[in-house]
Simulated assay, not measured.
Amino acid sequence: MKQVINDIKITDLQPEVLERAASMLKAIAHPMRIAILSHLEDGKKLTVTEIHNLLKIEQSTTSHHLGILKDKGVLASQREGKNTFYFLKHDSLRNIIDCVSKCSVG
């Protein structure tokens, strides 16, 4: 039985699309990065400073994780004055965050 996601069959995806998806999932698969993504749900846009204050980690560590997530296409950023705001690049990534939250309980 083929798995269908939004009318796209997994078996129909091109190898390069699957490679990009795997790369994104590898980037997400880190406890601190999952925590970062959980703060960016529901269309939120946060700065490095806001994220490092929320997670109580060093700003350099926060920047490192944000860089990885942005590089792998998970996050996007938008500069406004002196601040750079980070946000989920694709709204559907919320489904992954939601799944991880639900699947890791119990």
Rank of each mutant, 00 (worst) to 15 (best):
Ala76Arg: 02
Met32Lys: 12
Arg79Met: 12
Tyr86His: 10
Leu40Ala: 05
Asn53Tyr: 02
Lys72Cys: 08
Ile5Phe: 14
Gly73Lys: 05
Leu88Arg: 01
Ile68Lys: 06
Ile10Met: 10
Ser38Ile: 09
Ala76Pro: 00
Asp98Val: 09
Lys2Thr: 06
Asp42Leu: 11
Lys56Met: 04
Lys102Val: 09
Glu50Gly: 00
Leu46Thr: 01
Arg20Glu: 15
Pro15Arg: 07
Ser101Trp: 13
Ser60Met: 07
Ile28Lys: 01
Asn95Lys: 12
Gly73Leu: 11
His30Trp: 06
Leu18Asn: 01
Asp98Asn: 13
Asn95Met: 11
Lys26Leu: 15
Ile68Asn: 02
Lys56Glu: 02
Leu69Ile: 08
Leu69Asp: 01
Ser63Phe: 02
Ser23Asp: 10
Gly106Thr: 08
Gly73Arg: 07
Asn95Leu: 14
Ala21Trp: 14
Gly106Val: 10
Ile5His: 10
Leu69Phe: 06
Arg79Lys: 14
Val105Trp: 10
Leu46Lys: 03
Leu93Lys: 02
Thr62Asn: 00
Glu58Ile: 05
Ser63His: 03
His30Ser: 01
Ile34Lys: 06
Lys72Gly: 02
Leu18Val: 11
Leu69Arg: 02
Glu58Met: 13
Leu37Asn: 01
Lys89Ser: 14
Lys2Gln: 07
Asp12Ser: 14
Lys70Leu: 15
Thr61Gly: 04
Thr62Pro: 01
His30Asn: 10
Phe85Ser: 06
Leu54Phe: 08
Thr62Trp: 00
Met24Val: 13
His39Glu: 13
Cys103Arg: 13
Leu54Asp: 04
Lys44Trp: 04
Lys26Tyr: 12
Asp71Lys: 03
Ala21Cys: 11
Leu88Pro: 00
Leu75Gln: 00
Leu69Gly: 04
His39Lys: 15
Met1Phe: 13
Ile51Gly: 00
Ser23Phe: 12
Asp91Met: 05
Ile57Ser: 01
Met1Gln: 06
Leu13Gly: 07
His90Trp: 08
Ala35Phe: 02
Asp98Thr: 13
Ala21Lys: 07
Arg20Pro: 03
Ile68Trp: 08
Ala27Trp: 05
Asn6Val: 07
Val17Leu: 14
Arg33Trp: 11
His39Phe: 04
His65Gln: 03
Glu50Trp: 00
Ile8Ser: 11
Asp7His: 15
Ser101Tyr: 10
Ala29Arg: 05
Lys56Tyr: 00
Ala22Cys: 08
Glu80Met: 09
Lys70Glu: 11
Ser101Ala: 15
Ile5Met: 06
Arg33Gly: 12
